[in-house]
């Protein structure tokens, strides 16, 4: 555990692996009483390849794990606040609760699974990585998406996929107004109905490769579904 300060609260936790109700593979680490800066430093000190369960993450803290580039797996028992995981790279996250506004903004390559719901601007401008939300997502899901893969199991709000440039958005239970407004690239897979679809989108016949890709994404997101239940929308190339 290189770089861990001998006196730091988190350093002590990393060294004393506590055995809780879970598999002893997961190291419980408490964020209670730590400032946002201390939490950020502690996350950066996570042992590569480690499996860490975080408790007491303050849900009002904006930018949780922003810019974090650590090859480790993390679990959070509660909620995360606004702009969590911004610019995240190489980490795997599972959040048991809800996420605030702007989750995974400009995500680079991390993988996120949110078991609750997410706020507006989920995965806005996300360039890579994977985001799955089991609950609902707010408005402007995948706004300006730039290469990441995003899957939402429950209903999505208005303007999902607005300004998408690249990447894949999977909406497994319908969406609101203005699906794909201003979109210039990427693909949207939709199950159910959208309140309105941008006229620049065209429904495309799903090929086997598309269906396979969708199935893999659904499986990765732990969402049941058959690719044949989805419609594929893209902006036609000129």
């Amino acid at each position: 555990m290189n770089g861990v300060d001998a006196g730091s609260k988190v350093g002590v936790q990393y060294r004393n692996r506590l055995v809780g109700n879970e598999s002893s593979d997961w190291m419980p680490v408490s964020c209670e009483g730590l400032s946002p800066q201390q939490i950020g430093s502690a996350l950066r000190e996570s042992p590569p390849g480690g499996k860490i369960r975080l408790v007491g993450v303050p849900k009002t803290m904006p930018g949780f794990a922003s810019g974090l580039d650590v090859e480790a797996q993390f679990r959070i028992d509660g909620d995360v606040g606004d702009y969590a995981f911004m610019l995240g790279a190489n980490s795997n996250w599972e959040v048991a609760g809800d996420a605030g506004l702007g989750l995974a903004h400009s995500l680079v390559s991390s993988s996120l699974l949110i078991r609750g719901s997410a706020g507006d601007y989920l995965a806005a401008c996300a360039q890579g990585g994977f985001v799955a939300v089991h609950g609902r997502s707010g408005n402007a899901t995948a706004f300006g998406l730039a290469g990441a893969e995003v899957v939402v199991r429950s209903k999505s709000g208005d303007y999902a996929g607005a300004g998408m440039v690249k990447g894949i958005l999977v909406l497994a239970n319908g969406s609101g107004l203005g699906l794909g407004s201003g979109m210039t690239g990427g693909s949207i897979y939709l199950r159910g109905e959208a309140a309105s679809v941008s006229p620049r989108l065209k429904k495309i016949r799903m090929k086997d490769a598309d269906a396979m890709r969708l199935s893999l994404l659904l499986a990765r997101a732990e969402i049941r579904g058959d690719a044949r239940e989805f419609k594929l929308y893209q902006v036609p190339a000129h």
């Binding site: 922003s66 810019g67 606004d82 702009y83």
Partner: peptide, 22 residues
Amino acid sequence: SELVTTNALPAFISSVRAAAGG
């Protein structure tokens, strides 16, 4: 549009600063 809600801008600025190392 992602920054027009009441608390979005301060949260965004704070998050970007954190991502840059604080």
